[in-house]
Design a protein around this nucleic acid. Structure first.
Lengths: 247, 247
DNA sequence: CAGTGGTCTAGACCACGTA
DNA sequence: ACGTGGTCTAGACCACTGT
């Protein structure tokens, strides 16, 4: 299968997306065709208006594939990593470990609905007495426990999946999205190191006081409504989280 | 001083930025004026073309202040945190601690140029034998050491500031930007917990084996060229890093 | 049906960097 | 002087949502 090099005006796909796709393919395949990306050339090549070309280029800038310089031109970004690593995928740990051939498994426990502690009530802006879906999840690789998560999920009172359903879904957010159409658009993470509590130590097969990484996350819909509070304790040295920040 | 409510066509400031500013102020001040943000109304209010209004709204979406829904409208994002916290500012730790009244100070040592280890050579895509500016920085709050950073900065061979200059600048990247116009546009972070090495323990006044947070960062220009490799070891429990991810 | 945002066109003037 | 991207205008048609 070969990549398209022309746009199809009857396909229903927006022209700027087709152009973006074509240019993105050319950038990753051919590499730096510096100077071949001017708005002038692209309007002639694709026979579209300049605004459409600009919209396509703007998308490429947003995706970090090109940068633009006034009076100079549009140039591909030089990168060593062609396909980006695990950019903190939500609930993607199991799949990530599977890619590494580490034979991962997941264990969900203590699924119930409850009124959470004050800290979580504030973070999720819950009403008084409102319950959230609560459960623990442990992730194992090659039989060794790596990660212990405590999840608090704002959801309708009747939302109470079984542990088996949660394990199968790989991510409680996926279940919630399928059931109610709730989509996470933004997440805020706080991360620090600490000593394992006795509970965490037991769950991760560590000695009490051993180093663990704690990652506390609040996920929000695009409306800004917080829907998930999550606290993860990770085995030191083994689990590493990756973030990418555009400034 | 009151916020502007009209645009000034002679100010030289792009109209869409003026509109963005006005709308952003109104959103944070008044809050949810849902339904007052349609493109139709805004074109009439500011007497600009629809494309200009769209550009302003697009900026607000990018900044996470509003979201747009086809056939429905443009709505402000609900948020509890009006002004965002320290979103992992580069080198912003000292200023952040100062805001908290923690009497921070910074100590820079071992400033020299050297060929770094293989790992850093790869990350910064250095030429064979190319040297980088190398130094350690410790940050203290109320006299207590909180953070130990090892910085490797790709720079011209003649770039060799003094420790005093680096301390005054608060950030080596600022110095590099002032000297050579190099700007960081993107950074990749990997974070994990580990046990303090003897060197780290000594620098942070911890016992060997105590938990520390390690944050390894590569910063790049918008061209994609990596310019800084940095490894930070942070005192557990005290230092917390915040990341925000838009999906 | 009217109103919304999404897409697209064909122009225009400008500031800025390079030659 | 010329080409670049940045900004702006005044139209157009569309898909979709709600009434």
């Amino acid at each position: 299968m070969t990549a398209a090099t022309q746009i199809d005006r009857g396909s229903g796909v927006p022209l700027y997306l087709q152009i973006k796709r074509i240019l993105a393919d050319e950038i990753v395949a051919v590499g730096a065709d510096a100077g071949a990306m001017t708005e002038q050339l692209l309007t002639e090549r694709f026979r579209v208006s300049r605004a459409t070309v600009r919209q396509a280029l703007q998308e490429l800038v947003k995706d970090g594939l090109v940068y633009r310089e006034r009076s100079k031109g549009t140039f591909p970004v030089q990168r060593m990593d062609i396909d980006r690593p695990a950019t903190l995928q939500v609930g993607g740990l199991v799949g990530y470990l599977a890619d590494l051939g580490m034979n991962p498994s997941s264990e969900v426990r203590d699924v119930h609905r409850a009124v959470p502690p004050r800290e979580v009530v504030d973070a999720l802006m819950l009403d008084v007495g409102e319950t959230v879906l609560t459960f623990h999840r442990r992730v194992f690789a090659n039989g060794q426990p790596l990660s212990l998560a405590l999840v608090r999920l704002r959801s309708p009172e009747e939302f109470l999946p079984t542990a088996a359903e949660l394990e199968a879904a790989g991510s409680a957010i996926e279940l919630l999205e399928q059931a109610y159409g709730v989509r996470v658009a933004r997440s805020e993470h706080r991360v620090w190191a600490t000593s394992a509590s006795s509970e965490e130590a037991a769950a991760l097969a560590l000695e009490a006081g051993a180093p663990v990484l704690v990652l506390e996350t609040v996920m929000r819909t695009r409306e800004g409504r917080p829907v998930v509070w999550r606290r993860i304790a990770d085995h030191a040295d083994i689990i590493k989280h990756t973030f990418i920040a555009d400034l």
